[in-house]
Simulated scan of single mutants.
Amino acid sequence: MQFFSSFPWLRRFASGFAFVAVALILMAPLAACGGGSSSGNTNTSTGPVTLTYWAWIPNMDKQVALFNQSHPNIHVNWVNVGAGPLEYNKLFTAIKANNAPDVSEIEFQLLPTFETTGGLLDIAPYGAASVKNQFPSWMWTQVTNGSSIYAVPQDSGPMAMFYRADIFKKYNLPVPTTWAQYADDAAKLHAANPNEYITDFPPKNPGQFSGYAWQAGAHWFGVNGQSWKVSINDAPTLQVASYWQDLLNKKLVKTETDFTNGWYHDLQTGSLATWLTGAWGAGIIEQNAPQSS
């Protein structure tokens, strides 16, 4: 797949960093995509510490190996239990059973949900604010709640369009640079080959839709005096919803769950001509749909 960046919003994506109460050690070298930690382990230790870290981003095993090599008193066990929702379901269960990993990768938009479980450790008392200036202010606010700090950012990326250059060339379609062109290409592609679609509209990924709305100028949440202002049905959001509903009604996009075997297969075989996501999507494609390059 080729990379084409034309969507200038930043997705609220980050994942897993936290403090380990067992040793009160801030794992700053591991902190890079936001994340949460279990507060279930509270025993102290004077010997080497072993930590369990759940994450799915590519090449994390190499980063963990380097960390372990340079920190002889800490050993991190990296475990990939699945990406996104697959991990979250297991993490909710683990928190409920008081058996959560010490560190976990969590997307920005899911962090407040995990905060409500009471399973995350506030790392502010342990000096987490010392790395605040290493991140943009908008990113740091994603991992804080009042004076509490529940994560350290790890990754974010501008939204972009990954596309199959061979498919656009095969059907003599221009690479779209506007949403109107995108819809026009969607119709022409599916008319030329009913088994191919411009993209997938995953029904269980609200983060993607929020990105579309954000780019259109939506502001879902704000503060008005001492009250919250919620505007999830503002004009830009309704415009975005209408656009995608039109593509759905015409059956010009697929509606399968993303990050599943079937979805990876569609990327690999060309059933999906584009993928609108963060720039980090390149790593996902490389690992799961290498023949699409």
Rank of each mutant, 00 (worst) to 15 (best):
N233V: 02
F221K: 01
T237N: 11
V175K: 15
L91N: 05
S39G: 15
Y150N: 02
D266A: 15
A32W: 05
N249V: 01
P58W: 06
V76G: 03
Q134A: 12
A31M: 14
T117D: 11
I74G: 02
E256N: 04
W138M: 06
A83Y: 02
I95E: 01
T141E: 15
W78Y: 10
P48M: 10
W140A: 03
R164I: 11
A160M: 04
A282H: 00
Y264M: 02
T42Y: 08
E256H: 01
A83P: 00
L238E: 10
T117R: 12
V253E: 09
H71K: 05
T113F: 08
N172E: 13
A216P: 09
P72Y: 12
F201N: 14
G119M: 03
V253G: 13
A32G: 06
L10K: 08
Q245P: 01
D200I: 08
Y197S: 05
D185L: 11
I106M: 15
F108S: 13
L252H: 06
N233Q: 06
P58L: 06
P8L: 06
L110N: 10
I285P: 00
I57N: 00
K169C: 03
G262R: 10
A18I: 00
P8H: 09
H219Q: 04
Q268S: 12
M139R: 13
D184W: 01
L238Q: 15
